[in-house]
């Protein structure tokens, strides 16, 4: 029980910081100072002190969404190692469970959006559903590759530090995994070039528009949930890079530096390119899938 609490609080505490690093990086490229690193934290605290406003057309479904989002995000985090913190819960096949947790989160976001009856939210929901179809395939394909490399269907075995040694033998495949997984990370967290988290234009939004009607405390939950999701997906990616290490602290330092670098990379990607046209997003995602598929073929040819 204690390890679960530790795991969850670790994710809860550090996830908003990650967004702070992204914002700082983007500000640097724009020649500004940018908001303080802790700004996402301030935002969440501010929102938690506010009341929520509910449209009269919404039902309990709408109110359930924010809770469901944060709950699924936190649930997903206890299956993966966070640096040296081993996952407190694991079972055979938890990798599949993990993916469908995000399916569940999306399900609640989408029906919550529908519940408002707003045309914007309906459009956002349809876009989210369409893109996630494609990103889910990539995510699965990546997990299949990791399963084949690590020969285990348990997330904590796939992502533990002994995995690092596979780079020597499986380097090319893992590079493909990393690239396609990075794409999944961008899609799932609504980052440029797929979505623009900063835009105020409802007609172009994907993720943002689905939570447009949430306010106050509820919005705080959703923001926090999204931050945790970013953190969790990011830590999967970083886990692949953590070398074997002796002390608890060394592993943690590797992890934290890795996460900061990831946030930095996301910030750089967002700064050096414009957002894609919405109807070319599927092309990009298909490309990501092809990369993952290529890795699959390589593994098959290598005879595991």
């Amino acid at each position: 029980m204690f390890s679960v609490i530790l795991h969850v609080s670790f994710a809860l505490f550090f996830s908003p910081l990650l967004l702070g690093v992204v914002a700082k990086t983007k500000a640097f490229f724009a020649g500004r100072w940018g908001p303080p690193l802790l700004q996402p934290w301030y935002d969440i605290v501010k929102l938690f002190r506010k009341g929520s406003v509910y449209s009269t057309t919404t039902t309990w479904v709408f109110k359930l969404t924010p809770v469901a989002v944060l709950a699924t995000a936190l649930l997903s985090c206890i299956f993966i190692p966070l640096g040296t913190l081993a996952p407190p819960v694991y079972f055979w096949g938890d990798a599949l469970f993990f993916v469908y947790l995000y399916g569940l989160m999306r399900f609640f976001l989408i029906i919550g959006a529908w519940d408002t009856g707003s045309s914007f939210e309906g459009m956002g929901a349809s876009r989210e559903a369409a893109f996630s179809c494609l990103s889910e395939i990539i995510l699965f394909m990546d997990l299949i590759l990791l399963v084949m490399v690590s020969k285990s269907l348990v997330l904590c075995n796939m992502l533990n530090t002994s995995f690092f040694s596979s780079w020597a033998s499986m380097g090319p495949v893992l590079i493909l995994v990393v690239i396609s997984f990075f794409l999944v990370l961008l899609v799932e967290n609504a980052r440029i070039p797929i979505d623009d988290p900063n835009t105020h234009l409802e007609l172009t939004m994907v993720h943002e528009v689905m939570v447009l009607d949430h306010s106050g405390f509820d919005l705080g939950l959703i923001l926090w949930g999204s931050a945790v999701k970013f953190f969790v997906l990011g830590s999967i990616l970083i886990s692949l890079f953590i070398p074997r290490h002796e002390s608890f602290m060394a592993g943690m330092v590797f992890f934290m530096v890795g996460m900061a670098l990831l946030a930095l990379t996301v910030g750089v990607v967002e700064s050096i390119m414009a957002r894609l046209r919405l109807n070319s997003v599927p092309h990009l995602l298909t490309g990501g899938f092809v990369l993952a598929l290529l890795g699959f073929i390589v593994i098959l040819l290598k005879g595991m």
Binding site: K26, F29, A30, G31, R32, T199, L201, S271, I272, A274
Partner: peptide, 16 residues
């Protein structure tokens, strides 16, 4: 225009 397509650096510099 650059803000709308999410191209941040240019949008900031043109703004200045």
């Amino acid at each position: 225009l650059s803000t709308d397509i999410g191209f941040l650096p240019v949008s900031a510099y043109f703004g200045r």
